[in-house]
Design a protein around this nucleic acid. Structure first.
Lengths: 141, 141
DNA sequence: ACACAAGGTAATTAAGTGAGACCACAGACG
DNA sequence: CGTCTGTGGTCTCACTTAATTACCTTGTGT
């Protein structure tokens, strides 16, 4: 075996395969390839929700927490820091009476909204089909 | 406070905000919204890599494992099952001499390639900038 | 009988996540 | 004066989930 397994069923797939980890068929995946790196970051539980919130404009710490009520302060702090470290959001401290902190998307952070929106659109469109598939799968168990 | 924080800085953001969890500003996020549901699934360590592999055509279990060498059999089995449960991939058993199993994308699974490719393209384009930002952030610690 | 491979499961361990106490600072209240 | 509130966090601990290592089952060629 090993020959003729990976038959391309549509030309559009070629581009996708090339984009994924830019590897040759049969070659191992680079563990530090951009795809894995990025998906590890935005694939967590909160990053996309925070990015989606900040897409609506700058928010203060407590404002983000109000927008996403079921996030704990610990996770909010950590996720914000991770996003800041990756250059997707910027943190600005204002020396007001009680010091307030504002978070906003950087230009780089803005650029991720497009692919993210594309994924969100797919999620909304496909959610019903996915739930059906789950139901059918669970009944056949 | 609470007023005027979420100032929209560009019209494109509106659509994004609407897509995210289809919530009103100030309203809490639905914990079961499609976005969270989908991102929980494809946001894990291996799903996207498997989808990217199967984008190149049907693969047998061991072929997927060869394509992604650093995945354990346990995770490969589980991720394949989860993707099958969600209707993104189909599992077909062939009663050959040693019974072989083939995994392939379903029509629904094919439709996720487009948004996913969009994200992968962003990852490749932005990886350098992200690594720079990380370096700068870590030096300023 | 023996090694070997495909496909999968069981048990163990590492990582992610959450709840809540605590801190520093300033101002308002009593 | 001493306490209370609000902001933007940090810290520790317990818990839930993800992920790795190690084993099992079935068939097959030698």
């Amino acid at each position: 075996m090993g020959q003729g397994e990976a038959k391309v069923t549509a030309p559009a797939f070629d581009a996708t395969v090339q984009l994924f980890a830019d590897r040759q068929p049969g070659q191992p995946v680079d563990p530090q390839c951009p795809v894995r790196d990025v998906l590890d970051r935005i694939g967590d539980k909160w990053s996309t929700l925070i990015l989606g919130t900040l897409a609506g404009g700058p928010h203060r710490f407590s404002a983000v927490q109000r927008a996403i009520p079921d996030i704990s302060k610990r996770m909010l702090t950590q996720t914000l820091r991770d996003l800041e470290r990756d250059g997707l959001i910027a943190r600005t401290v204002f020396p007001t009476k009680p010091p307030s902190v504002e978070y906003r998307l950087t230009p780089l952070g803005v650029t991720i909204l497009e692919p993210l929106t594309s994924l969100v659109r797919w999620a909304n469109q496909s959610h019903a089909a996915i739930r059906e598939a789950r139901l059918a799968f669970d009944q056949a168990s």
